[in-house]
């Protein structure tokens, strides 16, 4: 089936549009008219999706979004299948609670990208803001599966409380990368901010550039872990080739000793 194309007509100004209905799971069995009639929220008012988007196509689990969707929240939230391609930016909470399928974003992503996702793939060609793949405030776990790839830079607390899955960032990360992680893998090609891995219990943060560590991380050794070869090979297959060889040495630090201390930060030597 050809994809359902959503072309942004009216751009919300101060108030963001909440469009949880933009999901392949919901589009796959709906006609064009039914898709246009799906509800979206603008503040405390409920509108039709067709009020903001020109809809073309029906009954497909592939969605293409055109125009400026940077103020549209919850795109692909909870989706389990299919694909969303965004030719532009996306608003907050894109791919949150996602369980399968793919979201490909040509532009930038706002806060809470892929928060608490459990499966699937999110790829951002631009930058992503704070708490990518993290937990919502009060939740015990962040991302519990899936893959998030960001070609640009990311904000604070990326991967916070992360439990499983992989986040790879080509650019730089701001502070508290992987804070409170309980497992999973974060791979940062660029520069990390301060307090990387703060409070982490388990999990792996790979930094390909030097990083200033908290004093609660302890140096173990320099070695070439075989599992990194698997990660790097997978990233290469996904079109995100690391700038260092897979068999290169890394310096291993374990921590955060202020907590369980079974996490690790691997820094390219």
């Amino acid at each position: 089936m050809p994809p359902v194309v959503l072309h942004m007509q009216e751009i919300p100004t101060n108030i963001p549009l909440e469009a949880e209905s933009i999901s392949p799971d919901l589009f796959v069995e709906r006609s064009q008219a039914e898709i246009e009639a799906m509800p979206v929220a603008l503040g405390n008012e409920t509108h039709r999706l067709g009020d903001f988007f020109k809809v073309k196509g029906e009954r497909s689990d592939e969605i293409v979004i055109e125009g400026c969707a940077g103020r549209v929240k919850w795109i692909g939230s909870g989706m389990t299948r299919g694909r969303i391609v965004v030719h532009g930016d996306v608003g907050m909470h894109a791919g949150s609670y996602m369980r399968g399928g793919e979201i490909l974003i040509d532009g930038n992503a706002d806060d809470f990208l892929g928060v608490e996702m459990q499966g699937g793939l999110i790829r951002v060609k631009g930058n992503a803001r704070h708490r990518v793949g993290a937990a919502y405030r009060g939740s015990k776990y962040g991302m519990q599966g899936g893959i998030i790839l960001v070609d640009g830079n990311v904000g604070h607390e990326v991967g916070a409380y992360m439990r499983r899955g992989l986040i790879a960032i080509k650019g730089n990360a701001e502070d508290f990368l992987g804070a409170m992680m309980t497992n999973g893998t974060i791979c940062l090609f660029g520069q990390a901010g301060i307090r990387t891995g703060g409070g982490m219990q388990k999990g792996t943060i790979v930094c390909l550039r030097p990083v200033e560590l908290l004093p609660t991380f302890v140096y173990d050794c320099s070695y070439s872990p075989v599992f990194l070869r698997m990660v790097f090979k997978g990233l290469k297959q996904l079109g995100m080739e690391p700038p260092v060889p897979a068999n290169g040495l890394v310096r291993r630090y374990h921590g955060d000793l202020a907590d369980v201390g079974k996490g690790e930060i691997l820094i390219a030597a």
Binding site: G119, I147, T204, P225, G234, Q237, L238
Partner: peptide, 30 residues
Amino acid sequence: ISKRFESRILGNGSGPRRFWRIPVMDGEFI
């Protein structure tokens, strides 16, 4: 240490696979 990788990372088309990293004297046994 447990590592669970999605099929997209392993490129095998099947479901996620879990691996164990067991510390040994030359590094790790996967």
